[in-house]
């Protein structure tokens, strides 16, 4: 049996030193709901696990400069119980809440979902749509990175060996803004997305879209931002013509693979349908129309 060490540093500096000093593979641990499964299957053979959860601030939510800051390892259950986040970013909260069971929600984090870098990760399209940034720390200091620059391929990220995410920053929310995330799965609970879509919009007083971000999951090697789909929304109300263009733009951006969950043709079509449905919820929310949960 290979030897595996564990450390639970109580400061960012100590964590970075441990990561930088490891001779073999070192893995950061948040909720462990991906990492422990990979350890058990033997897919991953690290020599060191650095548990971040004792670092002050890495679990928790605070408001700063008119926006929210979410600690990297904050469990889904904590995010879901936060009234301010539910009011400002219901789509992001629902996306994270879709992950796994009650048991998984007690542990799963945004950082783990993003850095596990699955193309089907549920919270990631919502994070991309929100325009969130990740605060990354490492030996060279601190940098703030748009979340869409973190995943680079299935299971791969742009983070250096000695880097990890300490928190996510969500921008201040202008009036008449709304977000939504929908995933398509063949059952109602506990499944992996065939396609996921996150959309965030801001409208003017007449209901015309002034800003939009659209992201798709499970149709590409990573979650993708789709600027062409955002462009068809900006300057328009969500009428039939806009919806048709949005559908077409989402389909054009989708470059899925065929697997047991769906064929290329099926996933491409669903990407368009899901984009329309997600946009409808995001626009409703921006217009002050309250929806129930999107799932």
């Amino acid at each position: 049996m290979s030897s595996l060490s564990y450390a639970a540093p109580t400061s960012v500096d100590d964590a970075v030193k441990l990561l930088a000093g490891a001779s073999g593979v070192a893995k950061v641990l948040s909720g462990g709901t991906d990492l422990l499964v990979q350890l058990r299957s033997g897919r991953l053979k690290p020599e060191l696990i650095v548990d971040t959860k004792k670092i002050p601030g890495i679990i928790g939510i605070r408001e700063e400069n008119g926006g929210f800051v979410i600690g990297a390892a904050t469990p889904g259950a904590v995010v879901e119980a936060h009234p301010g986040l539910n009011a400002a970013w219901p789509g992001l909260v629902e996306a994270l809440d879709l992950i796994g069971s009650t048991q998984v929600q007690g542990r799963c984090s945004l950082a783990g979902n993003l850095c596990n870098a699955s193309p089907a990760a549920d919270s990631v399209p919502a994070l991309f749509a929100a325009g969130a940034t990740a605060v990354v720390v490492g030996s060279k200091g601190k940098r703030e990175v748009p979340v869409e620059q973190i995943p680079t391929g299935p299971g791969r990220t742009s983070l250096a060996k000695d880097e990890f995410i300490v928190e996510f920053r969500l921008p201040p929310r202008p009036a008449r803004s709304g977000d939504a995330y929908l995933r398509f799965i063949p059952r109602t609970e506990m499944d992996i997305a065939v396609v996921g879509c996150g959309i965030s919009v801001t409208l003017d007083a007449n209901g015309v879209c002034t800003a939009a971000r659209v992201a798709l999951g499970a149709v590409s090697p990573t979650v993708i931002l789709v600027p062409a789909a955002a462009d068809v929304l900006i300057g328009h109300k969500l009428d039939a013509d806009t919806l048709a263009k949005l559908d077409a733009a989402a389909q054009a951006a989708a470059k899925p693979i065929s697997d047991k969950r769906g064929t290329v043709e099926y996933r491409t079509k669903i990407a368009g349908v899901l984009a329309r449905r997600t946009a409808a919820i995001a626009f409703d929310r921006a217009n002050g129309i309250k929806n129930g949960k999107a799932h």
Partner: peptide, 24 residues
């Protein structure tokens, strides 16, 4: 983490004990 047969309550939260390290 799929079956829940290992469920325990840790610091007030329901978790799968198969997805928690003993050292944690």
């Amino acid at each position: 983490g799929d079956c829940g047969a290992c469920s325990v309550i840790m610091d007030g939260r329901l978790v799968c004990s198969c997805l928690v390290l003993g050292v944690e």
